[in-house]
Design a binder for these strands. Sequence first.
DNA 1: CTGAAAGCGCTTACAG
DNA 2: CTGAAAGCGCTTACAG
Lengths: 317, 317
Amino acid sequence: MSLALRDSPLVADATRERIKEHAREIGYIYNRRAASLRTSRSGIVGVVVHDIMNPFFAEILKSIEHELDRSRQTFILSNHYDELEKQRNFIDTLLQLGADGVIMSPAIGTPASDIALAEDNGLPAVLIARSVEGADVPVFRGDDAYGVGLATDHLIGLGHRRIAMIGGTDQTSTGRERYRGYVVAMERAGLEPRPEWRIAGPRTKLGGFDAASQFLNLPEKPTAAVCWNDLVAIGLMNGLARAGLKPGIDISVTGYDDLEEAAIATPALTTVWNGQREVGRQAAKALLDRLSGIEVHGDQDLITPELHVRQSTSAPK
Amino acid sequence: MSLALRDSPLVADATRERIKEHAREIGYIYNRRAASLRTSRSGIVGVVVHDIMNPFFAEILKSIEHELDRSRQTFILSNHYDELEKQRNFIDTLLQLGADGVIMSPAIGTPASDIALAEDNGLPAVLIARSVEGADVPVFRGDDAYGVGLATDHLIGLGHRRIAMIGGTDQTSTGRERYRGYVVAMERAGLEPRPEWRIAGPRTKLGGFDAASQFLNLPEKPTAAVCWNDLVAIGLMNGLARAGLKPGIDISVTGYDDLEEAAIATPALTTVWNGQREVGRQAAKALLDRLSGIEVHGDQDLITPELHVRQSTSAPK
DNA sequence: CTGAAAGCGCTTACAG
DNA sequence: CTGAAAGCGCTTACAG
């Protein structure tokens, strides 16, 4: 009977249908805990990110979901809010449930040993968005330095000379990479990336909104802002508008990620496409490959970002 | 040993600590599948909503997460995208995993029998946001008709006479309630809620954005729009701005939900607080109560919405 | 090829 | 009070 319900080819079609029909009639419910106990395969995959409310992750999650659905894996989602403790609890839960694998955007400060612990206990891991020094697992993310370079070059090309960088933190690999991309592009153009033009910290709309006044008080007023992500950029534009300025005309603003929302912001946001869909798809595929025993190499294939020019950038006045 | 690890009072403190220490050393991992198989309690709670990317649900989820965390329940999240099939698959998965309960915002068209099926198989359900005719389970949501009435009354009080209602669908209980609130408020003020002033459908930012041109072509141009939710309102304001109008001055706009984002929109959005946090908290608590055998009455305590007036509404020009 | 038995790792009722 | 045994519902190796 169990063979028939699992669509085994060892059972004739007609027999299978009869058994399934009967199972339905008596309200039979397959007990996955029991099966999993026996086979040590649970069909569960864990996904843990900073914050699923963040549309950047939400877009990644959608494509992970799509990919996992196709191979009938159930996925369990969790936020770690960049707290190591929460992340550890979640990994612990996955181990206890006998999950088959985990896709994670590691919390700030995740040591390689945390990932090794999971791996050593039969929980293969795949990273997204951020890498962890010393962890020998596949990582999927965009080429952040290159992407921010695109945005910075674009502003320089429009004639901007004083360009601020708003948001992000040096505590993550992504943060360091994006800042590096900005610095390199500025220097390449012979411009000085003045440290006081960097407003580190903001990563949300509210953060960008609040940074507007700080931006407007910067020494030797910058005429443009390269933002950490679209959320910060949209928040900043709202803050600038609230202060009576016209973002896109008085001050040029670029985002990062190209969220669905970027195109309908006012003004429509010039931003860098960061391949969220691709990141999710590739990460899910890599994990599924690992589960079926296919070797996946640990080095990261960076996704190449693209600049999408819209109305939030123009020549300085 | 198992007693010690579960902090049973039957074991002396010193002994417990020694055993735990040893367990840590040998890298022992508690097998929840085995325990669950034996006790038929899994510590898993399912949550299924239309779309977790929607900030409205995301805010509810956050408070559910907070509440479940405190009682060490793991929660599994899923989107049904208003597809019954997806919702059924998820409930099936929960049954197979032996989940302890489910919190759901039922997909359009969910029959009471689907909920009965879960309940009959030992999976207690609690509903959020939408109710299901004939299902005898607790429901937690706001008083939608009353809330939209608040927004409509506010616009009428400012002097508006031609007011459109944008977004939402009659296929959900929420949709019908919100439209009813608008109609009742209009009629109470002796105004005619003309059917062509209703643009049904939009429920997202993009939907609201696209509805702007349709709104501007409405017969006997309305001077204000009551929107289905904040997303539609923000999208509509962006669309109006793109058409050269000043939302909040040329056209008054109200939202619904009071998302975090509403306060930082440009102009800041006048909207109706819908108690997301409360909905999540109460739903989680009700489910936990049911799990510990406490009777929870099936009739719904509606949360009373509040109007939050900001800059997106003013007297008609 | 078929059917009965062992065993996954827990918890708990029960014998000693 | 303690320790060994039964059993949760599956899957699979094995005996017949």
